[in-house]
Design a protein around this nucleic acid. Sequence first.
DNA 1: ATCGTATCATGACAAATATCATATAACGCT
DNA 2: AGCGTTATATGATATTTGTCATGATACGAT
Lengths: 243, 243
Amino acid sequence: MAKIIESTCTDCAKLEDGCCKTCITEHKFNIFSPLTNQEIEFLIDDKKQIIYKTGETIMKQNTSSTHVVCVRSGLAKLYVESDNGKNVIVRIAKKGDFITGGGLFNGSVQHFSITALTPVRCCLIDSAKLTTLFSENNSFAVGLLRYNTKQNNYLLNKLVNHTQKYMPGRVADTLLYLKNEIFAESVFQAPLTRQELAEMSNMTKESFVRILHQFKDSKLVAVDGNTIEILNENSLLAISKNG
Amino acid sequence: MAKIIESTCTDCAKLEDGCCKTCITEHKFNIFSPLTNQEIEFLIDDKKQIIYKTGETIMKQNTSSTHVVCVRSGLAKLYVESDNGKNVIVRIAKKGDFITGGGLFNGSVQHFSITALTPVRCCLIDSAKLTTLFSENNSFAVGLLRYNTKQNNYLLNKLVNHTQKYMPGRVADTLLYLKNEIFAESVFQAPLTRQELAEMSNMTKESFVRILHQFKDSKLVAVDGNTIEILNENSLLAISKNG
DNA sequence: ATCGTATCATGACAAATATCATATAACGCT
DNA sequence: AGCGTTATATGATATTTGTCATGATACGAT
């Protein structure tokens, strides 16, 4: 089971990478940057730090949760489990990501699941605390709204990409997303199966494999198992653009 | 061109359907319901009421705008213009709908276009005013966040529906959406072309026409030009569910 | 080491969907 | 009323994508 480390800021200094305040700056939780030290103290007062093993479920779609998740380390997939049994991976969460479920201020039922792709250390914060901070701190509310707006735009973009582009364009999108948004490296070892890469690209694993192979033949990427290297980003961008 | 009626609350009493305060309650702008009279006065101080003719563009994707739109009457389509020239209609806005562009608190660039499907009367409110109200009114901020969360869930759902369902399921979704969300009537005259209905359903107009015809043959709907009657909602729900 | 299971890869085929061509109907305009 | 334009409808065909079957490879457990 997931390992729970209850920790207020007083004892989180014992953890190897510092206390909550430094975590917020170091891990770039921009969402919390408008907060004063006192407000941060309040926010993290009864937070829980939890370590999930690879494959463990951090949040389960359709269950109730009143927490938001702050990822301190590791990678997790955020996906919708559709009625037909197929998953749609919406995005990958990484260090510094802040995840509010579909229930924030709206029920509390999660509209997606989160599963650890690597060991994930994250903090769970009671979402009621966020509400309280709004009245005190105007720019925090604006920050959260900005975060929401960005999420909206991201989803809008994904909707168009997934419905309007052909498969090669979608595979190119997935590869560029991993390179630029997740790993910030041309070479990366993705802790994702072909099935999962396909679920990110809205196609079957067979189709993903075939197109990845084409990209390999065209020297756009180098592939060795889970290690992928982007060799020709411009061509991938062109493929992404042309659909 | 669109007709502009500049109006503070002082003179909007002259309009046939009352002043801003009554508009907020009557047209169910729930988003504003937490506001005091004074806050409403502040909000609408320099708002503009504009009347758009059918086909006119209310907002254009990729342009800058610092306003939010409140629809007082009429219907408008909210759509993304994709690179390949095809449109994706994301939703239909109706009386009482509050529309924040993709730029709210985040740039100010619109991530979608809005076009009037019927004559539309709407009010444009400076989004900077919303920010100011956050500090005064906590539950207004929470309301806006709730609205955003709902939008997010709506998009997430649309993403899954459009990528996982077969065409009949998507047509059923579009028809049920119009019946239940927009017209609240089993019989409705949709001011939408087959092309637009197809853009709502993520398919070509030919495919939409064919499937609508099948539904007609199966006595699920009655169709006469733009007038559609939902005859068997349960069957449509089943088709929607099974993909 | 070896067995069983997962993943990955690849071909043949089937299904879903788009494209193209063309016909018909509706509708504003002179 | 007649004409051009646009929307709708429908068939034939092409393309895209998924499904199924089958090997090959990797990998953990006994």
